[in-house]
């Protein structure tokens, strides 16, 4: 994809220094993919337990709406304390909603897709209620910085996503949470009989997913300095699920790969950006996404690879190489 881009637009890979900040398409892609990375990280854990969280898009909208509402009603919109309070409020609300998802799935035992569908639908309504059906526009420099600010010449959003990825990685791999999540997703009954309290783990991952979605919601609304209960984070749950699957985590649960998910999110964002940059209408971009997803899934399918190898054993699958190159960028 990077190759295609470079051919079509010679300036694609170039990075300029402007005003002490780095600019360029690769940087844009990283910045724009930050919310998706966040949502997809939470989604990875949920999917690894064998569940799914459809409500993350609505959660983005809700958290964004609460934060913006608080800032817009405050007297001093630019004071850091106002912004921090707003963030804390919205974050807390997201945790409560995540706990609601966890309750439905882990305690009451509703199937995850249905349980989170409730909040997916109801959450949009809730976000609209918060914004009273309006688009709340705010003018707050600190809040804006979450989406557009810079730090060490790079957009702040990149650092937030990176920090979240490292945090989730540490949270799962430095503790036994990752193993336990994989065990529950791999065989829930065997895990229970091995003494794992799977209910708690499942509950926890939904809360974690909501937390990730909340931060993504801040970024999305900060990017445009406004909260639109209807549009913020729309369909991001589907992109996130895609990112997770492209990243190599099975929808059936079990083994998960956070690195793969980050990569998957970057691929999706690169694709979106490419489609826009090449002046293809946004409507067709969905079709392009579908094609790429099919390609990636085929590359990952062992059966397909086996056939591919048998047919032309001399050729190695090409697309893997450029993807790997990109992985080095955020690291």
């Amino acid at each position: 994809m990077i190759a295609v881009n470079t051919v079509y637009r010679p300036g694609f890979l170039s990075i300029e220094v402007n005003d002490g900040h780095l600019y360029g398409t690769p940087i844009d892609i990283l910045r724009l993919s930050a919310p998706l990375i966040l949502v997809a990280l939470g989604m990875t854990l949920v999917i690894a337990t064998g569940g799914i969280d459809l409500s993350v898009g609505s959660l983005c909208a809700i958290s964004g709406a609460i934060a913006c509402l608080h800032i817009s009603t405050a007297t001093d919109r630019n004071s850091p304390s106002t912004v921090l309070t707003a963030l804390a409020l919205a974050f807390g609300a997201a945790l409560v909603l995540g706990a609601w998802n966890g309750l439905l799935v882990a305690v009451i035992g509703i199937q995850p897709i249905i349980a989170t569908l409730i909040l997916m639908v109801a959450g949009r309504g809730l976000a609209q209620l918060i914004t009273e059906g309006q688009i709340i526009t705010i003018n707050s420099a600190p809040y804006r910085a979450i989406g557009l600010g810079h730090f060490l010449t790079l957009p702040l959003a990149i650092f937030i996503a990176l920090a979240a990825a490292l945090l989730v990685a540490a949270f799962t791999r430095r503790t036994a949470l990752g193993l336990i999540v994989e065990s529950v997703g791999g065989n829930a009954e065997a895990s229970r009989l091995a003494g794992i309290r799977s209910g708690r783990v499942v509950f926890l991952v939904y809360v974690l997913s909501a937390a990730c979605a909340a931060v993504a919601g801040f970024m999305i609304t900060a990017n445009v300095s406004s909260a639109d209960g209807n549009a913020a984070g729309l369909w991001i749950e589907l992109d996130a699920i895609l990112a997770v699957v492209i990243g190599g985590t099975s929808l059936a649960g079990g083994r998960f790969s956070l690195g793969g998910t980050v990569l998957g999110a970057l691929i999706i964002q690169t694709l979106t950006t490419t489609v826009y940059a090449m002046n293809i209408s946004p409507q067709t971009s969905l079709l392009f996404k579908a094609v790429v997803v099919i390609a990636v899934c085929l590359i990952q399918s062992p059966a397909f690879r086996a056939k591919f190898r048998r047919r032309r054993s001399d050729r190695t699958p090409g697309p893997a190489a450029p993807q790997r190159k990109k992985e080095q960028v955020p690291a």
Binding site: L179, I180, S183, N187, A190, G195, G254
Partner: peptide
Amino acid sequence: AEGIVPELSVRENMILAMQAARGW
């Protein structure tokens, strides 16, 4: 159905009960 977690490794399957008892 109730014993092994098939895709986890031998090592992970072995330590599962002890890990569960210790908490994550």
